[in-house]
Structure formats: structure tokens, C-alpha cells
Design a protein around this nucleic acid. Structure first.
Lengths: 128, 128
DNA sequence: CTGGATCCTGCTCGATACTG
DNA sequence: CAGTATCGAGCAGGATCCAG
């Protein structure tokens, strides 16, 4: 099974925060849940594009351990599991937005314009 | 030599931003330079605690490529090289501060209180 | 449908030695 | 003093198969 890192070497609150939504998939999951509200496991996997089950399941576990998302399972056949942001999870959205806005100012100066798939990702965040 | 990642898989401005100050050392370097203003290579290494030359030099190169820090070398014997934040580099400080503040609200709820070395790192950021 | 188990790749980071 | 060169470990993340 894919094991998340054990020793964290967190030196200050800043690094605790970066660990919450850093890494390859966490910010994407938070973004999508912020936009869609509630998603099933399979829908989440479809939104992530190219994530594997092992990694998705492990990432979801980390986000649950950090109380960013919540899991709700229904006792049905076929099984149904839904994920949504917690209050704490929603509270990181403004931070992600501010990073977005900061990047929007500077990323055009960057020679390699790798940022193509979404020019402004503010649309991801429903301003509920 | 330590080679930074080649393919970035940046999907949106948010991820561009996270890449700028994510990773193990970048945020620490930005913090220290924000606090101290200008630092020589050796002082920087001392502040980082346990960083090796290979990793420090590579990280500084990345930060220079992203125009977050600037390098100034003086033609002296022994050689002297100093690093300081650019305007763009200083502009990320408010973002790091907001992450700090957000973490301050939540990290106490976390069972393992790994955050010991600095309880509030706002002191790092000179409000010039 | 929602994952777990297992194995594997490749990058991130570290240790050590060396140089202008 | 301020790095570079080289080697290597360990972990984040990936591929594949399988189970309740």
C-alpha cells in the first residue's frame, strides 16, 4: 500500500499549512470539491485525470486525517461513497485563491507558458 | 549534480504558485531572506540548518530562475556572494503570512504537536 | 463501485569529496 | 568562501491486479 511520509520535519505553522495542500494532488482535490460541492469516488477520479486508485485513496486518507474533507458512505448496493469539504477545508479556499491571483500577475512573465489548461482558475471556486 | 524536476505538469496558476515556494527549502529561504534582508551564502547555509551545499546551491538556482531572489557577487578575495529577495520575491511574503495565520488557527487541534521550533513565525517577516 | 495489495519507477534530497 | 561533481538512499507517486 502507498504510505504517506512518516517524518514530517515541520518547523513552523507555515510548513504545516504547505503540507496540507501541497503535493501533487491535494490542491486539485480541494479545488474540485470547492467547485462541485459533493463528489463520489469515481467522479473524483474522473476529475483528477490520470490519477490511480492507490494514489487517490491514499491522498483522500491524508486529507481526512487533516480534517480537510469528510467521507460519507451510504449502505447501498452498489456501494456509494461521497466526499465533501469540511469547514476547515473550506477555509483554505481563500488562501488558494490568493495564490492563484498572485500567480496570475507573474506567470505571464515566465518564458515557458506551461500554464495552458486553465488560464484563470478562479472559476473553480464557487463564491457561495 | 542535483537536478531539479524537468516535467512540471502545471495545470493552473495555483500550481505555478505552489511550485514557487513549495518543496522542502524554498519557503525557508524566502522567510530567512525576508527577515534578514541580505545574506551571504555561508550565512544562508547556517540559517537553514542541515542543508547540504548541493541542495542549497540547486535551490538557490531555482529561486533565481523564478526571479524570486537575486544574486550579487563581489570581486574580492575571499569571494563574497550575497542573496536578497527581488520585488517579486517580496510579493510572496503576504501569501506566506496568510498561510501562517491560517495554520495558527488550526494546528493546535492537531494531535501530534510537531510544530515546536517556532510557535508563531510572523516574527520572521519584517513589516518594512 | 470503492477501494486494498503488491510491486516498481524516478525524482527529491542527502553525503562526501573536491576546486577556483 | 562559494560553490561543483558524483554517488546513492528513500520516498512520492505510478501500474497492475484483485476483493468486498
Amino acid at each position: 500500500m502507498y504510505q504517506p511520509k512518516l517524518e514530517k520535519d515541520i518547523r513552523c505553522p507555515l510548513e504545516y499549512g504547505l503540507q496540507i495542500f501541497g503535493g501533487k494532488w491535494k490542491s486539485r482535490i480541494i479545488c474540485v470539491l470547492a467547485e462541485k460541492g459533493v463528489l463520489r469516488y469515481s467522479s473524483l477520479r474522473k476529475e483528477m485525470v490520470n490519477i490511480t486508485d492507490a494514489v487517490l485513496a491514499a491522498t483522500l486518507k491524508e486529507l481526512m486525517a487533516d480534517q480537510i474533507i469528510e467521507r460519507q458512505s451510504y449502505d447501498e448496493i452498489p456501494p456509494r461513497v461521497e466526499y465533501h469539504l469540511t469547514h476547515k477545508g473550506k477555509s483554505v479556499i481563500p488562501i488558494l485563491q490568493s495564490i492563484c491571483r498572485w500567480s496570475g500577475v507573474y506567470h505571464r512573465e515566465n518564458s515557458q507558458s506551461v500554464i495552458s489548461q486553465c488560464q484563470k482558475c478562479d472559476y473553480k471556486f464557487k463564491t457561495e
